[in-house]
Amino acid sequence: MRGLWLDGLRVTRDGATVVELNLTVAPGEVVTIMGPSGSGKSTALAAILGTLAPAFRASGRVVLDGRDLTGRPPRARRIGMMFQDDVLFPHLSVAGNLGFGLPFGLRGAARRARIASALAEAGLEGFADRDPATLSGGQRARVALMRTLLAEPAALLLDEPFSRLDAYLRGQIRGFVLDRIRQTGLPAILVTHDAEDARAAGGPVLPPAP
């Protein structure tokens, strides 16, 4: 079965349930989770990604394209993540950031070509050697998405990725990200508190329970 399946995923802390999710996300679909701060949205994403802090306990299963990910380390899950900030690595160039997610086996000209085509797709031709700190907010967001996609994830998690962008850039970057998701056919979960994000995503919207 293709897609992302959260099978009774429940996160507890000191015995109390923080968040509980039961849902399936089809390839190319974007499920939006809305809710105020502190409602456990980010905790849910950490559980899916496998980066929960030791104080939390998770039960239930995370199944991606038929693979049970429960208990696997984050690096082996093939789940891409976009953060509120771009979290570009400040000590690497733009190309270095993009290359970080590429498979190790891809070398030389082939590697450079992949990075160049990713830059072209993001409208950032010639930016390979730039310092990420010199990029605009919109450019950084696009580099962050391309970096995530170059790692060839099988699903995407988006943790309020547009909330730090100003109104004009917001619509533009949102369109860019959602287009890429539909093109690549990835199942995606978008966490946001902006109803406009949910509408643009077009998929089911749910408040996390409880």
């Binding site: 990604l49 380390p73 984050p74 979290v87 970080f100 970096r147």
Partner: peptide
């Protein structure tokens, strides 16, 4: 710490995060 999370989501293991991100930074 989000740097490490971002890298793990890109498929990097603990050793790679240490040598290529945490230590250089």
């Amino acid at each position: 710490g989000r740097i490490a999370t971002a890298a793990a989501a890109l498929g990097a293991g603990e050793a790679r995060i240490f040598w290529q991100l945490r230590l250089p930074m």
